[in-house]
Amino acid sequence: WEITFERNGKRITVRTTDHRLLELFEKLWRNGADERELERLAEEINR
């Protein structure tokens, strides 16, 4: 799966075969987690 999240013109794409990681990322994104931390998390998930 691949999903791109966008907020205030900032886009972060997450790619993984584990839908649970996408759900976790989406919850953090929707709850306003720090964008720098989300970028780092996305990099780890995308590996």
Rank of each mutant, 00 (worst) to 15 (best):
F5N: 00
I12W: 14
I45H: 01
N8I: 02
T13R: 06
R30Q: 13
K10A: 06
L22T: 02
H19W: 15
V14W: 01
T4H: 13
G9P: 00
E44T: 07
T17E: 10
G9E: 04
E39C: 06
T16C: 01
V14C: 02
W29F: 11
E2H: 07
T16Y: 05
E6T: 08
F5S: 00
L24R: 10
E6G: 01
K27C: 07
E2Q: 09
G9K: 02
E44A: 10
R15K: 14
D18P: 01
F5Q: 00
W29M: 09
D18I: 04
T16Q: 02
K27F: 14
W1L: 10
I3Q: 12
N46K: 04
R47I: 11
N31H: 08
E43D: 14
I3P: 01
I45E: 02
I45Y: 03
H19V: 14
L38P: 00
E39D: 08
D34I: 15
A33F: 07
E26C: 04
G9D: 06
W29R: 03
E43A: 09
I45Q: 01
T13H: 05
W1S: 06
L24H: 12
L24D: 07
E35P: 07
R30I: 12
R15I: 12
E35Q: 07
A42G: 02
G9M: 02
D18M: 04
E37G: 02
E2Y: 08
N31Y: 06
E6R: 02
N46A: 09
A42M: 09
E6P: 01
N46R: 04
D18N: 13
N46E: 09
D34H: 08
T4V: 13
T13F: 05
R47S: 15
L21M: 14
A33T: 13
E39G: 03
K10I: 13
E37D: 10
E39K: 06
E43T: 05
R7M: 12
L28K: 09
F25G: 00
L22I: 13
L24E: 11
I12K: 00
R36P: 07
N46L: 08
A42R: 02
W1Y: 13
T13Q: 05
I12V: 07
K27S: 12
F25R: 00
N8R: 03
E26W: 14
N8A: 06
E37R: 05
L38M: 07
I3Y: 14
I12N: 00
A42W: 07
V14P: 00
F5E: 00
F5K: 02
N31S: 15
G32R: 02
E35L: 15
R47V: 13
R11F: 15
L41H: 02
A33W: 08
L24C: 06
R11G: 07
A33E: 08
R40Q: 14
N31Q: 14
E35A: 10
K10C: 04
E2L: 06
T13G: 01
R30L: 14
I12G: 00
E35V: 12
F5Y: 13
T17V: 08
N8T: 04
L21W: 11
R47L: 14
R7W: 06
K27A: 11
L41I: 10
R20A: 14
L38Q: 01
L28G: 02
L21V: 09
A33M: 10
G32I: 03
R40W: 09
R7Q: 06
A42H: 02
R11N: 08
H19A: 14
A33G: 11
R40P: 01
R20M: 10
E43W: 06
I12S: 01
F5A: 02
E43V: 06
F5H: 03
R15D: 02
F5G: 00
G9L: 02
L28H: 09
E2W: 06
I45R: 00
H19R: 15
K10D: 03
R11H: 12
V14T: 01
W1T: 09
I12Y: 14
E44C: 14
R40E: 13
H19K: 15
R11A: 13
N46W: 07
E39P: 00
L22C: 03
A42T: 03
R30M: 13
R11C: 09
K10Y: 14
W1H: 11
E39H: 06
E6Y: 08
R7N: 05
N8M: 04
L24G: 04
R15A: 09
T16N: 05
A33I: 10
A33Q: 05
L21I: 09
I12A: 01
E26G: 04
K10E: 04
R47T: 14
E26T: 12
D34V: 13
E6A: 03
R47G: 15
L41A: 05
N8P: 02
E26R: 05
L21A: 14
T16W: 04
N8Y: 02
D34G: 09
L24F: 12
E39W: 05
A33N: 05
A42C: 06
T16I: 08
R20S: 13
T17R: 14
L22K: 07
H19M: 14
E2K: 03
L41R: 01
F25T: 00
L41T: 03
H19S: 12
T17M: 12
I12D: 00
